[in-house]
Simulated scan of single mutants.
Amino acid sequence: MPSTGPSTNPRPFNRRQAQENQAFLAALRRTGNVREAARSLGYHRSTMVKRRNRDAAFAAEWDAALALAHARLNAAERAEPVEGEPHIIRTAAGRLQLRRAQPRRLDRAAEQAFLAALSATANVRLSAAAAGFSHSAFYARRRESPAFAREMRLALEMGYERLEMALLEAADPDSYRDDAWRYNDPPPIPQMSAGEALQLLHLHQKEVRLQAEPAHIKRRRGESREAHSFRLAAMYEARLQRDREAFDIAEAERRAAGEPSPFGPKVLPLPALDQVKGWSKADPAKRPQDRERPMFGGWRIGDWKKE
């Protein structure tokens, strides 16, 4: 089912709705039929469709579940006729004919099914299985057709973005995606000696009680200290370079739009010179201004000396 433009910032599902969504996705992966999956769980199809339209991550998982179901059903299908054996078909006029079976061809419908599955899963082999062909057939088509190569690249980019969006939503504490274990009774602790318990505490102390080092900056096995320091410095430089590129792109777009720089000094508009008054009229006891003498802040130099 193609995406219908779900919202990218929806109201999060509550815990009951999140559990219903996961049960529906499991049934959808099993049946490959939206209506049957909703009916088997006692839900209405329109309820799930509304949730899909409002949540982009749920829509991505919906499409991925359909791709998985189609791949499994195509792999389990064994009723396809063997090449050369006769089989019965129905012609466009509605008549039945006995024809010799032809090998399956990679037609436009198979290409579209593959691209739709790829935009949902970002997995070439799984998408090829969902379309009913081997992955090598689509790689060969990509080499032969520049248009298909372009569409395959765009579908892969879309699948990557949708999976990334679903992963980011799963990291939200309000998603209730992976917290089912917290509401169940914990299993009993297996029997162990005091030495085994202390060994477990020692192994997990850094991760539980201390701040664990991220995996991408850990020193690899067999890596020297110099190589480790060089790799961290290269990662830091690459991150700075990406930031500089993003800043340059934003500056280019700002200049093209004619917007002022947010980092420059703010230039305040000057009032009209005919509105500038050098002599205050608030004190009626002051002498009127002498136009032949310069004014400094509304005062004559002679007045300063008298003061």
Results as ranks from 00 to 15, higher is better:
A212C: 13
Q275F: 02
Q275L: 08
Y183Q: 11
D174L: 03
G195C: 08
E111T: 07
R300S: 12
A246R: 12
R99K: 10
W62D: 09
S175I: 05
R35H: 10
L200C: 12
A65E: 02
K286D: 13
I189G: 09
P262L: 01
F247C: 14
F13L: 11
Q19M: 13
H44L: 00
E259S: 11
A250T: 08
D172S: 12
R78K: 08
W62K: 02
R143S: 12
E20H: 13
E253W: 09
L167E: 15
P288R: 05
E253H: 12
A130V: 03
Q241G: 07
E144M: 00
R162S: 02
H216C: 10
R125W: 08
A38H: 00
V267G: 03
Q205R: 11
N184H: 13
A75N: 08
M165P: 02
V208R: 11
A256S: 10
A113P: 00
P146G: 04
I189W: 10
R254G: 14
N184V: 06
A37L: 01
D55T: 02
A250F: 13
Q289Y: 07
G264P: 03
M295I: 03
R219F: 07
A257T: 15
A116P: 02
R104N: 12
Q19W: 08
P269G: 03
P260V: 09
L96C: 03
R52S: 07
P6E: 03
E85S: 10
L154N: 03
V267T: 14
F230E: 06
A56D: 02
R45M: 07
A109E: 04
G5D: 14
R220I: 02
Q97A: 09
F58Q: 06
G5Q: 05
A212G: 11
N33L: 02
I249Q: 09
E80G: 09
A23T: 07
P294H: 00
S7N: 14
Q17L: 00
D290G: 03
A155Q: 02
D55F: 02
L154D: 05
A238G: 06
S136G: 14
P284H: 15
P173W: 04
